[in-house]
Design a protein around this nucleic acid. Structure first.
Length: 600
RNA sequence: GGCUCCGUAGUUCAAUGGAUAGAAUGUGGGUUUCCGGAACCCAAGAUGUAGGUUCGAUUCCUACCGGAGCUACCA
């Protein structure tokens, strides 16, 4: 069952992604005819998928391995490669066919690659191609922060990952609804309000109320630990029970206090979402599904869907190895799972989705397995298309973040530290030198910090843990958002100074440095990288691709001087390749939710 | 105990089942050439163990070792 695992079935991918790469299509056609002469029937699709990259320092641009035919044709792969080379027909795309050991490598014609790849990227047509078909209507839920707590860098990983995946899926052709599910009710709210009402002596601040409220929650937890086992604890528990009762009844002073303080947290959340350029199509509030979820489970219990056990109600999933899924506690109240059952029901019914994705960290794996199984046994067919992306969490150097202990690094701390470091280390020196206008500093610092944070979060394989270290994050070097942004900004400046004219003549055949054609062929793989990243839920696949591209570009740029080229067509053609690189970087970053500055 | 995830240079990360396992950082040495040293070049340095599948395994399977997380009344 592929949807219960983070590994996605290859067959499923192939069915939905189209053969969108014109170069590979053409080569697959040639191979099909050539192989037919040798008595091998292969589908165009299979051949297309067998075409691969040529490693560095080997001849050619696209390779085709002959291993699979050795047994069938009872001949050694190198001999088959040589034989096939003879049988291939002519194509304007192919300059040369080179058997290299067991591989058949294609050396491509510069003019044709330039036309297919270069021209279409410059015109933008390349980025509007259909890449997939028959994709399911999908809802992606991500960002489930709690009100009355402060958001920390762990929430940022979720946000960056979710946003990137949604943009990626939309780019490759999915119909996606994005959803968020903030937790605005529960015991943590009671603790926060309890401390605020009975123990807080600080005045409520004018600004930053959301952050301050998070502190109340941490103090509340601290105090509760202190009074553990004392008479004061008994009293506190009674007070918190009263708070929860009022919240449930939606009346009383604590209900009013909840409504007011909840807004403070929402302001904080929206501030973060605005900063990150994140928008949700649907907002689900825990407080909104809470009562309905309990009623729904009770109703289903009456119908015999659920059973009673030790005074509680739920579903026995032990034969599926998932224990007992608890849905109503002995006191008749619901749990997280209860709400998720009701929430899923709403998603299916209100939006008619065919697939439902949950971006929640790996600690919830068991929870979602239970919820999906419960939904399935309740008769929801869509449960089979529910997928929990169990990405790994962010922790500090001292271990796991706990918002209860208050040892997590707040999102706002990361943002302000990074923006400040960028201003001080890179931007203000430029202002002093008269190369940058003071008004430009803040907007650029914001874009670069955003690039560093988002890119830093998604460049790591989602399955791997991130150990957060502020000093490392402020350094921004190597494979980073700013590296891409810096490359982009420099290309812009160079093209402007050297006078690139996209309307003037471009002759791709004049790009005679082998690295230039390598770069152009690499550019042609952009769409495939996006499809693989989207369908495998690995945006890091695309960041790795972009990094490789940018590095190759920087290598070329450092050794070929545009200024010194005397032939105007050659000069303009070379600059066209720079422009292609800039377009790829800009688009690639955009579909991961990161913008690039004109200068930095 | 059961389930899930992770083990690759000193450190942080890469590698649609394919050719000599790539980077960054740190270390040592370089780049007075359009853009702008947040750049570029060179050097040394790694697949936890044992099997299996395969023409071919860092990748897939099994066992073990090491680390993390989850495992009914928190979310």
């Amino acid at each position: 069952m592929w949807w219960t695992s983070s590994k996605v079935s290859v067959n499923f991918i192939l069915k939905m992604s189209l053969l969108h790469d014109e170069i590979k299509q053409e080569l697959a056609g040639l191979l099909q005819q050539g192989l037919a002469q040798m008595g091998v029937e292969e589908s165009l699709e299979d051949l297309y998928n067998k075409l691969g990259q040529v490693p560095k320092n080997a001849v050619g641009h696209v390779s085709f391995p002959l291993f699979p035919y050795a047994k069938l044709l009872r001949n050694a792969p190198p001999k088959l490669a040589a034989e096939l080379a003879e049988k291939l027909g002519e194509s304007t795309l192919v300059a040369e066919v080179k058997p290299v050991g067991p591989y058949l490598n294609f050396v491509l014609q510069r003019t044709e690659v330039g036309r297919i790849v270069g021209d279409s990227i410059l015109s933008g047509a390349y980025f509007t191609k259909a890449l997939t078909e028959d994709t399911p209507k999908t809802m992606v839920e991500y960002s489930q922060p709690n009100t009355h707590k402060e958001m920390h860098v762990g929430h940022m990983r979720n946000l960056a990952l979710g946003d990137a995946l949604i943009r990626l899926h939309r780019y490759v052709g999915y119909d996606i609804l994005s959803a968020t599910f903030p937790g605005d009710v529960g015991a943590h709210v009671a603790k926060c309000l309890w401390y605020l009402k009975y123990h807080n002596e600080e005045p409520i601040p004018e600004t930053g109320k959301g952050v301050w409220l998070g502190k109340m929650y941490v103090y509340g937890n601290g105090l509760l630990r202190e009074i553990e086992g004392t008479q004061a604890e008994v009293e506190a528990k009674a007070q918190m029970t009263e708070i929860l009762k009022q919240l449930e009844a939606q009346a009383g002073e604590f209900y009013d206090l909840w409504r007011e303080t909840r807004e403070w947290s929402i302001d904080l959340m929206e501030g973060v979402y605005n900063w990150a350029d994140v928008q949700f199509d649907v907002w689900y509030w825990e407080s909104d599904v809470d009562a309905d979820s309990v009623a729904y489970v009770k109703e289903q219990y009456e119908k015999g869907v659920f059973v009673e056990s030790e005074g509680a109600i739920g579903m026995d999933l032990s034969e599926d190895g998932l224990g007992f899924a608890l849905l109503l506690k002995r006191d008749g109240t619901g749990l997280y799972a209860t709400k998720d059952v009701e929430l899923a029901r709403r998603k299916f019914q209100d939006y008619g989705i065919e697939k439902s994705v949950y971006i929640v960290d790996t600690r919830q794996a068991y929870h979602f397995k239970q919820v999906f199984k419960v939904l399935e046994k309740m008769g929801f067919d869509q449960a089979r298309n529910c997928f929990h992306l169990q990405y790994n969490y962010v922790e500090g150097k001292e271990g796991m973040f706990s918002s209860r202990l208050g040892n997590a690094v707040p999102i706002m701390a990361l943002i302000t530290n990074l923006e400040e470091a960028i201003r001080k280390n890179y931007l203000l020196p430029q202002v002093e030198k008269g190369e940058m206008d003071p008004d430009e500093v803040d907007p650029i610092a914001r874009i670069v910090a955003k690039g560093a944070i988002k890119y830093g979060m998604i460049r790591i394989d989602p399955a791997k843990k991130i150990v957060f270290d502020m000093r490392e994050w402020i350094k921004i070097d190597g494979d980073s958002g700013p590296y891409q942004q810096y490359t982009f900004a420099r290309i812009n400046r160079l093209l402007r100074k050297q006078g690139f004219d996209p309307e003037a003549a471009i002759d791709w055949n004049l790009l005679d440095d082998p690295r230039e054609m390598e770069l152009l062929v690499m550019a042609s793989r952009f769409n495939q990288a996006a499809v693989t990243a989207a369908e495998g839920y690995k945006p890091n696949f695309l960041t790795a691709y972009l990094y490789e591209l940018a590095r190759l570009y920087n290598n070329i740029n450092n050794s070929i001087m545009i200024r010194d080229i005397t032939d105007p067509v050659r000069k303009n053609s070379r600059m066209a390749l720079h422009a292609v690189t800039a377009k790829i970087i800009e688009k690639g970053m955009a579909i991961m939710g990161i913008s690039v500055p004109e200068k930095m």
